[in-house]
């Protein structure tokens, strides 16, 4: 139970902090603000969720990344923030589809490349 509570809480905090900080940093400092936000926000969220293990990832099981939380938070945040309604939500689905296809392709390619590349690491984090 507490593992699930940790998973839920870590995901919620990661999603909230990304979309609270990233747009403001970009607006204030431009491109470098966006780059800095990754350094500040993703690093501490990764440290909490994946290094300390607040998001439950048992040994030997499929890796569940905090990226799911960031992606979901992007949709929830924008729906609430911009009050766009169901039409606006439908407008994001093609991008979401392309994004998932591209990500899955990256996973398949990475698997093929890693097979012949023993130096590549095990997915602790990411």
């Amino acid at each position: 139970m507490s593992r699930r509570l940790g998973t839920l809480t870590g995901a919620a905090i990661c999603g909230a902090v990304v979309f609270s900080v990233w747009p403001e940093m970009w607006k204030s400092y431009g491109i470098f603000g966006g780059w800095m936000t990754a350094a500040v926000v993703i690093s501490i969220c990764w440290y909490m969720n994946h290094w300390l293990g607040v998001i439950d990832n048992p040994e030997g099981k499929l890796w569940v990344d905090q990226g799911w939380a960031v992606g979901a938070a992007g949709i929830a945040w924008a729906m609430v923030r911009w009050q766009g309604g169901i039409d606006a939500f439908a407008a994001c689905l093609p991008t979401l589809g392309c994004c998932l296809i591209g990500g899955a392709l990256g996973g398949v390619f990475a698997y093929q490349v890693k097979k012949h590349l023993p130096g590549a690491g095990k997915p602790k984090g990411g």
Binding site: G67, V70, A76, G84, G106
Partner: peptide, 22 residues
């Protein structure tokens, strides 16, 4: 999509999906 009205699609989806598919 939709530019300003459509929800934000983050590359977190891509990363999470890639690690999962891998």
């Amino acid at each position: 999509g939709g530019h300003g009205g459509a929800p934000w699609i983050d590359m977190g989806w891509a990363v999470a999906m890639g690690i999962w598919v891998c």
